[in-house]
Design a protein around this nucleic acid. Structure first.
Ligand code: FES
Ligand code: FES
Lengths: 133, 133
DNA sequence: ATCAAATAGTATAAAAACAGTACTCTTTAT
DNA sequence: ATAAAGAGTACTGTTTTTATACTATTTGAT
């Protein structure tokens, strides 16, 4: 079963929570409260999203996270990439991290590329806005 | 990292091997030899593919597997489904096997459906033929 | 009939990935 | 100075994946 991690699922929940709040700046604790998700989990997700600039973070007392792009501009592809790492359908696709044991003798080396491209563009064309409607 | 299982990758290797052989009927052992993959692995893949009628199996002495569809008619979606199970991007998507702990209070219940649909159609539109060319 | 070749189905053990949590460090408003 | 809040990292238990093994069934050949 092809699937995204649970954390990616949480990421969507958290991001959607932003759109349902009047405050632009929300702390991890506040978001945990809103989403009813465990606070450490929410904190972890937000750190990952911040690293890829999907949310903006402000450190220090009174800090928190904010969403400064419109949600129609945030694709599922970038959320998944931020949380689960690069989208690579097999280990022998272009840009995959590890490499494959059979590379030397393999009959389908690189053949998954078209699949990977298809997958990637499918995920790029779904935005957060599509998931809240 | 979104990915298909290793077995799905092997499945493609094995299916491609069919197209490079003169014999229509090949045993698991013969395919293992052709693909240089370990025989138990090849056997396992073929069993799964046979169960979903992607290959046809003939039991008994002198038996083996054959491919009776043109490879242009075999989509990656069906291979992945046969080997890895249904394509369900999260556990709370329509048609997923298990169900989710947060179903009761979740803000994005079913929201991954559009993603799942996009993914599925992406995989349906790539055939084995696209991977051998 | 018997044997051997071959697939079907199930079970097992080791390895890898994931999920959840905890802890320390740095930044910043008061 | 202090406390609030994010950044970064590390750890542990659980789950999934991977690879293999074993038994049962089918079928052609002797
Ligand atoms: S199976 Fe990885 S290079 Fe082919
Ligand atoms: S996280 Fe599963 S129903 Fe929402």
């Amino acid at each position: 079963m092809i699937k995204v991690s649970r954390l990616a699922d949480y990421a969507v929940v958290v991001l959607v929570a932003f759109t349902r709040s009047d405050d632009a700046l929300l702390s991890a604790a506040a978001l945990a409260d809103k989403t009813k998700l465990p606070e450490p989990t929410v904190a972890k997700v937000l750190k990952l999203l911040a690293k890829d600039n999907i949310v903006k973070s402000i450190r220090g007392a009174g800090g928190g996270y904010s969403l400064d792009k419109p949600i129609g501009n945030i694709s599922i592809a970038e959320i998944v990439k931020a949380v689960d790492g690069p989208i690579a359908v097999t280990s022998c696709v272009d840009g995959a991290t590890g490499s494959c044991d059979y590379e030397g003798c393999c009959a389908v080396k690189g053949r998954w590329n078209p699949v990977n491209v298809a997958l990637h563009s499918a995920l790029e064309n779904v935005t957060l806005a599509d998931m809240t409607s």
